[in-house]
Computed example of a mutant assay.
Amino acid sequence: MTAIPTFAVYAAAALAEIAGCFAVWAWMRLGASALWLLPGLMALAAFAWLLTLAPSDFAGRAFAAYGGVYIGSSLIWLWAIEGQRPDSWDMTGALLCVIGAGIILFAPHVA
């Protein structure tokens, strides 16, 4: 099995999580059919599976590092799917989070 690059794992996990959560949002807040919940649940299951592929020996560290990627991905979703362009505060906050995620994931940790 070929190793999947870290960013690809986190990007796919973010897409799956955001899509799954948006399905619930669409049903509850936008009046979409409850049928939206079926692909939403499948997307959330895929999200959980994808996070197990993260290159970390500890789940908490993998999840913490993923958080920064999730924030950036959520702003891309905001712009691409919801048509709302992120402002400079959104972008600054996301940049700080992605930097923090990189530190958490790639720093040399003491066992």
Rank of each mutant, 00 (worst) to 15 (best):
A8Q: 15
V9D: 03
A101Q: 05
A43P: 01
I71A: 14
A62T: 12
M1A: 13
A65I: 10
M42V: 15
A16H: 05
L37A: 10
A43T: 01
M42T: 13
L53K: 15
L38M: 11
V24E: 05
M1Y: 13
L75I: 10
W79Y: 08
A80L: 12
F63C: 08
M28Y: 10
W77H: 07
W89N: 08
Q84N: 09
T2I: 14
V69I: 15
E17P: 00
G102T: 07
P55I: 04
A13D: 04
F63N: 03
S88F: 11
A59Y: 12
A59E: 09
I81P: 08
F58T: 12
A48L: 03
G72R: 10
F7G: 03
L30K: 15
M91D: 01
W27M: 11
A59G: 09
L51K: 11
G83F: 04
W25N: 00
S33H: 10
A32P: 11
I99L: 14
C21G: 03
M42Y: 10
L51D: 02
F106G: 07
T2A: 15
M28R: 14
F58W: 11
Y10V: 00
V110C: 09
F58V: 11
A19M: 14
L53S: 05
G31D: 06
A12C: 12
G31V: 07
E17S: 02
S88R: 10
A94F: 02
A19E: 06
W77N: 00
L15I: 13
E17M: 02
W89A: 09
Q84M: 05
I81L: 14
W77M: 10
F22Y: 13
L44Y: 00
G67D: 07
F47H: 10
L95I: 15
A14K: 00
L53F: 15
A34M: 09
L78R: 08
L44T: 00
